[in-house]
């Protein structure tokens, strides 16, 4: 069963320099109770994909093509991509069925209201809990995300909490409406490693306890490896490889995935390991190379094919998909 089915999603932005396709034909599913991961370097479109699913694209962005089917419990299935930004259906779904946590917990809370005030606002909006019980439920939520002294913390302002604590409070707020899908966009990027490990443990435990589906967006492949069931590797607005996490790590097929894995610095490496790296840098979204977008940096690019023709998706197995000419030829 899939909770979300994204198909051929194209998201464009109007900017001063012209129109950019930030997401360029992305397809993946999020299964019920599972975690889908999107990994890639900056500018690859992973956050934009999440924003499109939540219908919170900025004003200069729009969904040009494709569908985002959300299988709601109460509302039946519908296509999020067709809904306007102010559609009533979204109000029913936001917070109650889908919730999102962001990278920067210090800018996601309003500084002039207490944490409790802001979480209770979400509770009032997304649940039917009577007013006099809302505070108690809020304390329960704070307790659930392992904030110590929730009775005291509920009346504190965001500046009084540390970065890790603020991220916990944001998770509590996201959980207020008992969502079925939690989108986590780089939830630990601004945190220290020890706190990062605490937050990731918390998210894994909460998923197990509540049976939520998750979309985990991260640039750190280590975090993706430890928290997801399926991964899509993104490069310049496309998913170049999609596979179960274990399989992707054991058997990466796309040249970009392979190069990326080789270039990651790991603590488990022996000192003095010769560093592999990808030549050049990610092209900007205005000048996406013709054909396969990775061909100028790819060591296995085939002249006359990779630089002219778009690669199609090749199914390696039922769950493993790669978008590369190398495998297309082999299949023939």
């Amino acid at each position: 069963m899939n909770l979300v089915e994204v198909k051929d999603l194209v998201v464009r932005f109007r900017t001063d320099e012209g129109i950019v396709s930030a997401v360029n034909g992305v397809s993946f599913d999020i299964a019920v109770g599972k975690t889908m991961g999107l990994v890639g370097e900056s500018g690859c479109g992973k956050s934009v994909t999440a924003d499109a699913i939540m219908s919170i694209l900025p004003d200069n962005g729009w969904i040009e093509n494709g569908s985002i089917i959300y299988n709601s419990l109460h509302e039946g299935s519908f296509n999020v991509a067709e809904l306007g930004k102010k559609d009533k259906k979204l109000e029913l779904v936001h917070g109650k069925e889908m919730a999102m946590i962001f990278q920067e917990p210090s800018t996601s809370f309003c500084p002039v209201y207490t944490i409790g005030n802001q979480i209770i606002e979400a509770i009032a909006l997304h649940t039917n809990i009577p007013k006099d019980e809302q505070r108690e439920y809020c304390i329960e939520l704070l307790h659930k995300v392992r904030i110590s002294n929730p009775e005291q913390r509920i009346d504190e302002y965001p500046y009084q909490l540390s970065g890790g604590m603020r991220q916990r409070a944001m998770i509590a707020m996201a959980l207020a409406g008992s969502p079925r899908l939690l989108i986590a966009d780089e939830p630990t990027t601004s945190l220290d490693v020890t706190v990062q490990a605490q937050i990731l443990n918390l998210l894994l435990d909460l998923q197990q306890e509540l049976g939520m589906s998750m979309l985990m967006i991260n640039h750190n492949i280590g975090i993706i490896a430890e928290t997801t069931d399926m991964v899509g590797v993104m490069y310049l607005g496309k998913i170049v490889e999609l596979a179960p996490t274990k399989e992707l790590l054991a058997n990466p097929m796309h040249p970009y995935t392979r190069d990326l894995f080789r270039s990651i610095l790991q603590v488990t490496d022996q000192k003095g390991r010769k560093l592999a790296f990808i030549e050049g840098s990610v092209p900007d979204a205005y000048n996406i190379p013709k054909g396969c977008a990775y061909h100028p940096r790819c060591g296995q690019a085939i002249d006359g094919l990779c630089d002219t023709e778009l690669p199609v998706n090749c199914d390696i197995s039922d769950t493993h998909r790669v978008s590369c000419h190398l495998y297309n030829k082999r299949a023939q």
Partner: peptide, 20 residues
Amino acid sequence: LSVPRLVADKSVRKETIAGE
């Protein structure tokens, strides 16, 4: 122990330290 590693296993919880 806190550093994420390239090991795909969701059942494993990181041994980490409490507090900040």
